[in-house]
Every structure is written in C-alpha cells, then in structure tokens.
Amino acid sequence: MQELNLKVNGATYSVSVKADMTLLEVLRDKLHITSPKVGCNTGDCGACSVILDGQLVKSCITNALMADGKEVVTLEGLSKPGKLHPIQEAFHQYGASQCGFCTPGMIMASKALLDQNPNPTDEEIREALSGNLCRCTGYVNIIKAVKEAAKKMNGGE
C-alpha cells in the first residue's frame, strides 16, 4: 500500500493504494466518483477519459501513482450548480448523448481539445475524439455539439 495525494475537481484527497492500481479504480472504487466509466479497461474505448494536469488520459491504463501531487478533472468538475459548461449544454441540446455511457469520456475529450484549440475544424474534432467509442450516436451529433460549443465559448451567439 502506498500513499497517494491528489486533487480531484478541486478537492484534495489522500488515499492508500496498491502499486498496481489504476487511476480509474481509485476514482471509482475509492472515491466513488463515477462519471469515468469502465468500458473496456484496456485503453480502447475512452469511456474512462479524464484530464490529468491539463492532459487527456485514459484513466484505466494510467497508474494511480502517476497522479500523485497532480490535479484530476472529471465530468463532475465541469458544471457549477445550475450552470452547465457550454460543452455539456451543447451535448444536451444537440442530442449528442443517447445511452450516455460514452458521454463523460466524450465531453472530457472535447474539453481537452477546446482548451488547446478553441476553433477546431471538423477534421480536428474527429481526430481528437477518435479514441472515444460511441455505439449509439454515429458521432454525427457529437461532432456538431463540439462545434456549437466552440462557437459559444468563442463568444458567438
């Protein structure tokens, strides 16, 4: 067991973890932060995506101890009470979420993209989200939502 200190969505946690634990296991099983989903546990689906010190990571293949002293943002950390993040709003409004299981990962991947590239082209959106699988939507409304969110965040309508 080792001591892990990390910040998640602004709150500080200190947990003891086994050396082989993943960040996803710590978030879900230890902290009960459940928006990161277990879709595959092999790094293939992106349902577990979170932002670790500004970088998008798949938390199922990220060793928990890598997050020591760092800051994690999950989907829970995006909205304030009564106020959605523009990406969340766009996903809701444009039907980018059907069953919703891929949605937390998709939104985090979209946020990581827009943080770095506020004005992505369709192609750049596709590329940025290509590690996140969705079986329901055919991605069409997801790509649309990211574009609309970017517009809004850039002060458009």
């Binding site: 595959c40 959106i125 790509i143």
Partner: peptide, 17 residues
C-alpha cells in the same frame, strides 16, 4: 478479445451523410 481487435466505427469512419 479487446475493442482493439473487434473494430467498430470511430469518428474517423463516418462519411458525409
């Protein structure tokens, strides 16, 4: 055995529709 072997469409596989 994984979603790396069973390939389903990603954002890159969606043609104009």
């Amino acid at each position: 055995k994984t979603l790396g072997d069973y390939i389903i469409p990603t954002t890159m596989d969606v043609p104009p529709m």
